[in-house]
Design a protein around this nucleic acid. Structure first.
Lengths: 357, 357
DNA sequence: CACCTTCCATGAAACGATTCACACGCGGTG
DNA sequence: CACCGCGTGTGAATCGTTTCATGGAAGGTG
């Protein structure tokens, strides 16, 4: 009978290996492995004997060893631009559902929209030989992504269009989204419209801007003011709103389309703080339709993207990349405008009130 | 000279190992490892030769192999109750700062306040032999945590008091927090106060409740109504507010302390929707002071906890557990009440208005 | 009885990095 | 000249799991 005293690791703690289990159950390590991975090829009797030993020793499979052998890990990486933005946590939840169902784990990484942090995270994921990477990249598409693909690690872009047909990407039609938001405001009679963008290099922002701009161009007497605060956050929105308020009344926009809901919430907050009534004196449309948009005390109109679905679809494509005969897909979701109170008032009505005040 | 053609993995992709590097540089594997881990013991000449080979082959260290040898991974797990709650993403950011600075990676897991998911995540983290686990546990403290500790994996509780002195935990004084919120409302003249709790089993909720209750008891004519919606979310808040509105005017509370800001935002939203003015007719105090609390158009009063600091401190304690002579600590942060518009009006004034309406 | 399946279990060979005892060469010292 | 020490480099052993060729026993068939 095989016999060895249980190893104690550095700290003096018990760590049973598959060999300890085998010893205790009186079988070979191969058999223990079989119990773990293909229980059907092991006879009932030995199986229970092994399972008992596992329970008795508190054995836990060493994933590193398993991965080393398998060549790739049972983990998927998701790199997002801003983990504090509920849009991305919703995406993450969608990813998690699919990935967990496939028996994989999710490593959530936050790049903070900074290429260095992005690069560091991708490096770690590469070292971990992750099963795949989902990423909403910073403005520039780093060549690291191609390197990952060359190494056989599938990469799927999330909320970003692919530069070519040789990869998977899940995106939303942001030009359309921008257009929907702008047309809505134009229909309500607004003629001076602001686009609150921030960090102009991000394609998502550029596309939303393009959609807004093209809708505004189609209305002869309409004009567009572009604001680019430092970051795509609530603070950025406040900053932009303060600048709007500082404009001379004749040139001041009467409505804004914001590149995301955080910006929109910031704008809303600053307007209210300065006694500007929303939507009566200033209408706001956000983007993404995060839950907090509806929860704001002046509920925000917003361009809704299927946040969880975006994550789910991206994860499904990622898993499919491993399969034989995979064909790259680049689904584009159509956004929908959700109208709430923050843009409910017609501009002509608003103008009347303004005149009365 | 050592010679082998580069391996192609299953998919036909290049994957250089340390042996390939050694072969290309004309040195032994041990030397390559030394270049990677203790560059100082290798002579300038060989070092550059090896580094060139690494660059030429696009070699990336295989973390699994490294971990297998080392016995534990360079990863820390963080398990939170609700990744959609910005409180936890802020905590995560604090953790990330410390953990990254120490050269470790963070795996963020979401238990959704469900013990099964929590257990599954802890299982995976154990298999990965993570360096440590930070967790805001569900109501019951699962024995799995002790098992992890027995295996030598340090565990630190986050936003939760430890049941005994033999572990680290980072918490906030939630009884005090509840008391601060209630006293504030009582001072403003409110006498019928609601506590919006939800999932009563969570100690955090119980403590906040206890604080509120004890403050209310100290004022002779004050009374407390407890509401427990299904979940600690915006939807839960709306549910609770609807119930408040349904109460007969004589018994209806004039203010609420909510167990977190999501609930508070939901209450706010529902009140506004029903034309109840906040704070004139109904005052609200939230808990956690997430960024969205200040960003709400009726900015929310809230009990502030140092969210990032909580995460940072927890991560520091976790890293310290590995060191010789570590002593368990259980710091408790003092929360601070941040008064904003949602609770700004004195009740006597509010009563006047009500009478006038 | 010989032969063939079927069913189970075995044990050695990977996987890739780290570590450590050892060896080599060279300059300095007694 | 013998010896020592120092600076470098070597290569085998090791971590724990999976896989696969092999072997043996039991049962069925001609």
């Amino acid at each position: 009978m095989w016999c060895r005293t249980l190893d104690l690791d550095r700290g003096g703690h018990l760590t049973a290996s598959i060999r300890d289990v085998a010893g205790r159950a009186g079988v070979s390590v191969g058999t223990v492995s079989n119990v773990l991975n293909r229980p059907d090829v092991v006879s009932e009797a030995t199986r229970t004997r092994v399972l008992d030993a596992i329970a008795a020793l508190g054995f836990v499979r060493n994933e590193s060893a398993r991965q080393l052998r398998a060549g790739s890990s049972r983990t998927v990486g998701l790199v997002v631009l801003d983990i504090a933005n509920p849009f991305f946590t919703d995406v993450a939840r969608g990813v998690e559902d699919v990935v967990n169902a496939a028996g994989l784990a999710l490593v959530l990484c936050n790049s903070d929209d900074r290429p260095e942090k992005e690069a560091a995270h991708l490096g770690l994921l590469a070292e971990q030989r992750v099963h795949g990477v989902l990423i909403t990249p910073t403005a520039e598409l780093t060549p690291q992504l191609d390197t990952l693909r060359d190494r056989g690690i599938p990469v799927v872009l999330v909320d970003r269009r692919a530069p070519g047909p040789d990869q998977c990407a899940v995106a939303a039609d942001d030009v359309l989204g921008g257009r929907l938001a702008a047309e809505h405001l134009l229909e309500r009679g607004h003629r001076r419209i602001a686009f609150v963008g921030g960090h102009a290099a991000l394609p998502q922002v550029q596309e939303r801007h393009a959609g807004v701009a093209s809708a505004v161009r189609e209305v002869p007497d309409a004009e567009l003011t572009v604001l680019s605060p430092g970051e795509l956050s609530v603070a950025g929105g406040r900053e932009a709103a303060a600048r709007v308020i500082g404009l001379p009344a004749a040139r001041r926009p009467t409505a804004a389309v914001c590149a995301n809901d955080l910006l929109a919430l910031g704008v809303l907050q600053e307007m209210v703080r300065h006694g500007v009534r929303v939507p009566a004196e200033f209408a706001i449309v956000g983007y993404d339709d995060i839950d907090f948009a509806a929860a704001a005390a002046v509920p925000l109109s917003s361009v809704r993207k299927p946040r969880q679905e975006l994550g789910r679809r991206a994860a499904e494509l990622l898993l499919d990349e491993g399969r034989e005969g995979h064909r790259h897909e680049q689904p584009v979701f159509e956004p929908v405008l959700v109208v709430r109170e923050s843009s409910m008032v017609r501009r002509d009505v608003a103008a009347d009130r303004e005149g009365a005040a």
